[in-house]
Structure formats: structure tokens, C-alpha cells
């Protein structure tokens, strides 16, 4: 785990009428769970992409710990953005659904097996590792999708509207699972959401509000924008 800092970060898309991010100063301490709340179009996804290295800021700097990662290529940052796509592959077992990203990254079979076993334990999926996805409950399927990010053992985990596509019933359950898991693993996590309910339910840690590209309301004393 590592802390993350945005220092005077600016971002504009080419030909855009207004900048996407303006003067962003925000530090998330190592192991913290930070909620980034803002309406659609406020710049949340762009801020996460800037941190993940998928978008270059037009000004300012981004740090992981003490390391300036502003110009570092995305694969070298040790920051993982969990995909909101959670389609699972029907012919692959749960273990292979978890581990295929590691195979893609060139890890050895032993390393993949070990990481998958550990993530499965953390996600309470050990019993179903050999099963096909069709045998899983809806909540278990979401845990597998989250597990795909965790097996990569990132220093920082980014979740961009991870519950966006869930029905009401699964929504609360998965939200709670994410919170519990983060508390256990202590991976520095930024959870971006446009749902006020989610923001309130998860606001035990750091929370910041983004509006029209500006980080306007650092809510929690001592934990939000410096």
C-alpha cells in the first residue's frame, strides 16, 4: 500500500470548452479508503485515469508515496483500475476467471495459483474455485470481478462507479463487501461515485467532492484535501 497525492493537477481535453480538472490538491494516506463523490461529468473518471496513467495531466504532478509518477507509463505504476465490466467467461473456472489477467502478465503457473488462492480466500470464494461461473450467485460473480483486480496486488486500487450496473438488492451487499474487504486488506482505495447514498454509506474514511472539475468540499477533517 502507498499514499497518493495530487498536487495542483490540471487537465483539459482537446477543444473542450472548459477544463476537466482545475487545481486538484488531494492526499490519500496509505491504506485509506477514499470516496470521491461528484455528479456525472464532474471529472471523477478523468481524475482516476490521471492517477492510473491513462490520461496525462496538462499541469501539476501526481505522487505515489514519495515517487513522482506523473510521466510514468501506466503499467509501471502499480495502480489498478477495476473494470466496471464484470462479464465472466463461461467455459473458464472461477480460478481461471481470476487468474487469466496474471497469465496475460506473464506470471508463472505457481505464482498464479498462489495469488488466486489468496484472493479467493479474501473474497470467500475458495469453495467455488473449481466451479463454472454459471454456478455462482450474483454477489459471488461480482466478487470474482473484484478479485481480478486484487490478484494483481496493486498498491492502489481505483473503483469507478463499481455498483453502477447492479440492481438494488445486490447494490448494498456488494458495497458492503467492498468496504469490508478494503478494511481487511488495507489497500489504498479510491472509490468514485455519483450516488449520494453510496457516498454517505461509505464515508467512514476520507471523502472529497468534485464539482465541475474542482475539488470543492473536503468533508472529513484531516483526511481530505490538504
Amino acid at each position: 500500500m502507498a499514499s497518493v497525492s495530487f498536487v495542483d493537477v490540471q487537465h483539459s481535453y482537446p477543444h473542450a470548452i472548459r477544463p476537466t480538472l482545475v487545481d486538484i490538491d488531494w492526499t490519500i494516506r496509505a491504506g485509506e479508503f477514499a470516496v470521491l463523490y461528484g455528479p456525472p461529468g464532474s471529472g471523477k473518471s478523468t481524475l482516476l485515469r490521471v492517477l492510473a496513467g491513462l490520461e496525462a495531466p496538462t499541469g501539476g504532478a501526481v505522487f505515489r508515496g514519495d515517487l513522482d509518477i506523473t510521466r510514468m507509463p501506466a503499467p509501471d505504476r502499480d495502480i489498478v483500475m477495476a473494470l466496471d465490466s464484470y462479464a465472466l467467461y463461461p467455459h473458464l473456472s472461477v480460478a481461471d476467471n481470476l487468474g487469466f489477467v496474471l497469465r496475460l502478465a506473464g506470471l508463472s503457473s505457481e505464482e498464479i495459483e498462489q495469488r488466486v488462492a489468496q484472493a479467493a480466500e479474501q473474497l470467500e470464494l475458495t469453495e467455488v474455485l473449481a466451479s463454472a461461473p454459471a454456478a455462482l450467485t450474483s454477489a459471488q460473480r461480482h466478487r470474482v470481478a473484484l478479485g481480478r483486480a486484487l490478484v494483481r496486488r496493486p498498491s492502489v486500487l481505483l473503483l469507478d462507479e463499481p455498483l453502477n450496473q447492479l440492481g438494488e438488492e445486490d447494490h448494498e451487499q456488494v458495497r458492503e463487501q467492498i468496504r469490508t474487504l478494503q478494511a481487511a486488506l488495507r489497500i489504498t482505495t479510491i472509490y468514485a461515485t455519483s450516488s449520494q447514498d453510496d457516498a454517505q454509506a461509505l464515508s467512514g474514511g476520507t471523502m472529497a467532492v468534485l464539482d465541475k472539475g474542482r475539488l470543492t468540499v473536503p468533508v472529513r477533517e484531516g483526511t481530505a484535501a490538504p
Partner: peptide, 22 residues
């Protein structure tokens, strides 16, 4: 968007790479 940044294009390529392999 009016025009994509290199980062946005790279993001799509990274996703494509992972998804197609899977």
C-alpha cells in the same frame, strides 16, 4: 469527445488486449 487523447486510446487498447485474451 471532440478528439481523443493518447491516454484514452491507450485505455481502449489495454482493455481490448485483456478482454480478447480472456
Amino acid at each position: 469527445h471532440e478528439e481523443l487523447t493518447d491516454g484514452q486510446r491507450e485505455h481502449d487498447l489495454t482493455l481490448a488486449h485483456t478482454n480478447i485474451a480472456g
